[in-house]
Design a protein around this nucleic acid. Structure first.
Lengths: 109, 109
DNA sequence: CAGCATCCGAAAGGATACTG
DNA sequence: CAGTATCCTTTCGGATGCTG
């Protein structure tokens, strides 16, 4: 999903905007900082990451925490609502893995 | 989902393009003709419906059958692959129903 | 560090008119 | 009936430069 070689465009599911699904997965195992998120999401720009995070925050799926001690730190974390979406998201990913070959075959033909 | 009063934009999931998920649900109970699909999808234009159907066909999720007896009839039907996507799609819809109020509350705040 | 402001190109979606 | 063709508007994502 995060690999540039991986043709993610084949995945027919999307949550929110282009990056929202991947952001949610990045937060699966605990809070992450803005700059930490930029690592797995290599090609995302700061502006677009900010946009996606704001949308997710507005929708109540993540929370934004600002720490000013001593330097600026901003952490993002899943809300219970955001965490609850991991289950249907996993179902989607499982389906995609199961039918990956069929999807690629269909594209070729 | 098909009601114009219903704020479908709140639904954070999407399959393929804007209409693909709804088209798949329209085909859930058997094949449908082009013009039949335009009824529940009231606001879709012929061009965009054609585009979405071609994409779904290319991805192997639906099949297109042309009947020329005696007038032109074109029917669309789910493939086994397309039918298998109904399950994760249902999981997504169930999640959305369960958390509908939370999503709307978050938007207001 | 974690953004915001500005500008830009590409793509998606749609309106309208026409066709085998 | 089931589309095509053409044009147009909007939206999306990104590049670049600046800031508290």
């Amino acid at each position: 999903m995060f690999d540039e070689i991986c043709p993610s465009e084949v995945v027919p599911f999307r949550i929110g905007d282009k990056w929202a699904g991947m952001i949610i997965r990045c937060l699966e195992h605990g809070p992450r900082r803005f700059s930490e998120l930029r690592i797995p999401l290599r090609t995302i720009t700061a502006k677009v990451l900010t946009q996606s995070l704001r949308t997710l925050e507005r929708d109540g799926l993540i929370l934004r925490h600002v720490h000013t001690t001593p330097v600026q730190r901003v952490e993002y974390d899943l809300t219970p609502l955001g965490r609850s979406i991991l289950e249907p998201l996993a179902a989607m990913c499982a389906w995609t893995e199961d039918h990956w070959d069929e999807l690629l075959d269909a594209r070729e033909a």
